[in-house]
């Protein structure tokens, strides 16, 4: 879980950096250059296969872990501690992950799928900037993106710290630093992501 999780965190950084190019307010010139590089570079495209493999591994491991753990207490407590002993998001990783997956289905269907299909059939990439501009006029799409980013943020608050704890970095020297960097990351990255649909929807771009 931790290794695939950290790989996905690295992916988020790259994805966020490339897509944030739209905020140069240059009509998408820089963004399209970067998107072209990402869409055609052999190394990136090979890593993309790894990304999907890791994503699927992360989901399969995560869900089987959640189901296995749930089965370890056949007789449930009549009264449970709830949030008195642990934060809700740390107990809801499978739910948050599933919400992110639902968002991902829409996200890939809207952008990644059509683009790769076009590349396969015509060899040409789609103009993803105009595609974003069109898609993000629909309020329900923006709402699903909000839900996706919101779930991602809470998933990361626990996931970032948890990944390093599992790898054994959770000692007194690093724990505070990992927790603070994790919380900062969980706030900044989802906000930058959500600024994209919001910016198009509000006609800032």
């Amino acid at each position: 879980m931790s290794l695939t999780g950290i790989f996905l965190i690295v992916f988020l950084v790259v994805h966020c950096y490339v897509n944030a190019q739209i905020f140069y307010f240059d009509g998408g010139v820089r963004f399209l250059e970067a998107a072209h590089f990402m869409g055609t570079n052999l190394l990136i495209r090979t890593t993309e296969i790894g990304l999907f493999a890791f994503l699927i591994l992360h989901m399969v491991q995560g869900l089987s872990l959640a189901f296995k753990n749930r089965s370890r207490r056949s007789q449930k407590y009549a009264v449970s501690a709830g949030s008195a002993t642990s934060p809700w998001y740390s107990r809801s990783m499978a739910l948050l992950g599933t919400l992110i997956l639902l968002f991902l289905v829409l996200h890939l269907y809207k952008f990644w799928g059509p683009n790769r299909l076009n590349q396969l059939t015509t060899g040409e990439e789609l103009n993803l900037y105009t595609a974003m501009k069109e898609e993000f006029q629909m309020a329900w799409v923006v709402a699903v993106y909000f839900l996706g980013c919101f779930s991602l943020a809470w998933h990361l608050v626990h996931g970032f710290y948890s990944a390093f704890q599992t790898l054994g970095f959770g000692n007194s020297r690093y724990k505070g630093m990992i927790k603070s960097v994790g919380i900062g990351f969980s706030i900044v990255v989802p906000i930058i992501f959500f600024m994209m649909p919001l910016a198009f929807f509000m006609h800032w771009l």
């Binding site: 207490r73 501690a81 740390s90 000692n171 724990k175």
Partner: peptide, 20 residues
Amino acid sequence: GSCTNIGACEAECPKGISLE
């Protein structure tokens, strides 16, 4: 079960055993 770093154990431990 397997540990998912929730931390309820540390919160309830009568001897304050740390997640470290």
